[in-house]
């Protein structure tokens, strides 16, 4: 019981820490962390769809890109203000991802991955090839939300968005919908037979998770000032997966810890850009080999090990009861 309270307390302390951090770090690291928060939102929302619900999508980065282009284009071409263009970007990603969810209702696993990947490639190439409208590979200038390139306001913006994302996902996973999503991942046939409307909840998972990606993307464009089809590059998707896997798939903190830790690590290794990807790949291999559940699994094992010592060697695990003889 007090475990829950500890969790919330740790979350609160981390939030406070992050809120005061810009006073102690320079603009460069504020910028780095802003980008890390952006990826943390993508990772956490992908975890909702592909981790908890088990729908392995490879289009998540593309929804970030679609959100970014929608909002930026609406502003640049139609003069629509932020407060309308950003929600429009979010709504459009939710709409497109719902349609994709409907298309993918009967597929899963590798087929779902392939379809979503193909969709992402179509979207990326659309923005590349319609360059008169989208700016193509050269990219598109996006008006800055706070009219400045000074990173502090954007840092707080993305910190706020990340906190909102975490709260939303926690609320979903603790509600009945969270039960249904987990049931769908474990056994969708059993879920349906137990009354779960899997059509509704699969589409829900697609729409909410992609909507969050679209939101992150839209704000990202207006924070960086320039968007390009690189946002839809498969590398971006691979990074999201790496963040989630390193942090711990199907855990709440895992994707966020993974995204922030790996982004910081990559930044520290910036000078050695060739060995950077090597180190990252080695990290993935080591974690996958020894801690299948990522950093959160490492944490669990350490905690269990400490508890075991405290309890004098008796582990609370694997106590399976065999029922006594029933009288009938």
């Amino acid at each position: 019981m007090n475990l829950f309270h500890t969790k919330y307390l740790v979350f609160l302390i981390l939030v406070l820490f992050a809120a005061f951090l810009p006073m102690y770090i320079g603009e460069y690291w504020q910028y780095v962390l802003t980008i890390a928060f952006f990826y943390a939102i993508l990772a956490a929302s992908w975890n909702l769809l592909s981790g908890y619900t088990g729908l392995f999508s490879l289009a998540h980065h593309a929804f970030g890109m679609i959100g970014a282009y929608t909002s930026t284009l609406l502003m640049a071409k139609a003069g629509i203000p932020f407060w309308m263009s950003i929600p429009a970007g979010i709504l459009l990603t939710m709409l497109i991802s719902s349609l994709m969810g409907i298309m993918c209702l009967r597929v899963s696993g590798l087929y779902l991955a392939l379809i979503t990947w193909a969709f992402a490639e179509v979207a990326r190439n659309y923005f590349r090839l319609h360059y008169t409208f989208t700016g193509g590979d050269r990219g598109l200038e996006s008006s800055l939300l706070f009219g400045t390139i000074q990173p502090t306001p954007y840092y707080y913006l993305f910190l706020g968005l990340l906190i909102a994302t975490i709260i939303l996902i926690v609320l979903i996973m603790r509600s009945r919908i969270g039960y249904y999503l987990k049931a769908i991942r474990d056994d969708s046939i059993a879920a349906r037979s137990m009354g779960v409307n899997i059509v509704r909840y699969k589409i829900f998972a697609f729409a909410v998770s992609s909507g969050l990606a679209g939101m992150a993307g839209a704000f990202y464009g207006h924070s960086i000032g320039l968007i390009s089809p690189i946002m839809g590059d498969f590398n971006e998707m691979a990074m999201i997966i790496i963040f989630v896997v390193i942090g711990g798939i199907r855990t709440m903190p895992g994707p966020i810890i993974g995204a922030i830790a790996v982004r910081i690590l990559m930044e520290l290794l910036r000078a050695q850009s060739e060995v950077r990807i090597l180190i990252l790949s080695l990290l993935v291999i080591i974690i996958m080999r020894f801690f299948n559940g990522g950093l959160m699994e490492l944490y669990r094992q350490i905690k269990q090990w400490i508890n075991k010592d405290k309890n004098g060697g008796t582990s609370a695990y694997h106590e399976i009861e065999t029922p006594k003889q029933g009288e009938s």
Partner: peptide, 22 residues
Amino acid sequence: FQVARVFLNMTVLENMLIPAFT
């Protein structure tokens, strides 16, 4: 089901709650 279909990654209690919640 002939081969039992339970939600393996949920707790026993959570398994029970699904049909009640729906």
